[in-house]
């Protein structure tokens, strides 16, 4: 393959691979989300099932505070997902718009802010997951 062919072939692929990578990341965060949401729904059904007056601590299983706390974790997980999807959408838009002028495009690389935000969203999701695990005791 000559250089000209290489230059003609490559432009679409590099941004496309990166855009697909962002999409895979969105799918991964949704999987993590679903488990946190599942814990909340599980607690919701158990609250209805357990008879009143048998509860111990405020955050013990079956108490409504426990359900609300798990709900907060689920909402936080949802929020982190929205943030990550926003990062992904803005990146995919840039990657797809720059296809024709890749060599001139100095701004096709990710901004540090976008990646830092994505990284922070994962840390926030980890905090929500740790709280959900602690509440599951």
């Amino acid at each position: 393959m000559t250089d000209a062919e290489g230059a003609a072939r490559d432009p679409g692929l590099q941004p496309e691979r990166t855009a697909l990578s962002w999409r895979r990341t969105i799918m991964s965060i949704i999987v993590a989300d679903i488990f946190i949401w599942r814990g909340w729904f599980h607690a919701l059904t158990h609250e209805r099932a357990s008879p009143p007056g048998t509860m111990g601590g405020v955050f013990d299983a079956g108490h409504s505070s426990h359900v609300i706390a798990l709900g907060v974790c689920a909402m936080a997980a949802c929020l982190t997902t929205i943030i990550l999807v926003a990062c992904a959408v803005s990146r995919i838009r840039v990657l797809h718009s720059g296809v024709e002028r890749l060599d001139q495009a100095a701004d096709i690389a990710a901004s540090a802010l976008t990646l830092r935000t994505a990284s922070a969203a994962i840390v926030a999701l980890a905090v929500a997951a740790i709280c959900a695990i602690a509440l599951g005791m």
Partner: peptide, 13 residues
């Protein structure tokens, strides 16, 4: 990292 998080919550539940 996300796989570790999902794994942690999944094993717990």
């Amino acid at each position: 990292a996300l796989a570790l998080l999902a794994g942690a919550v999944a094993i717990d539940q």
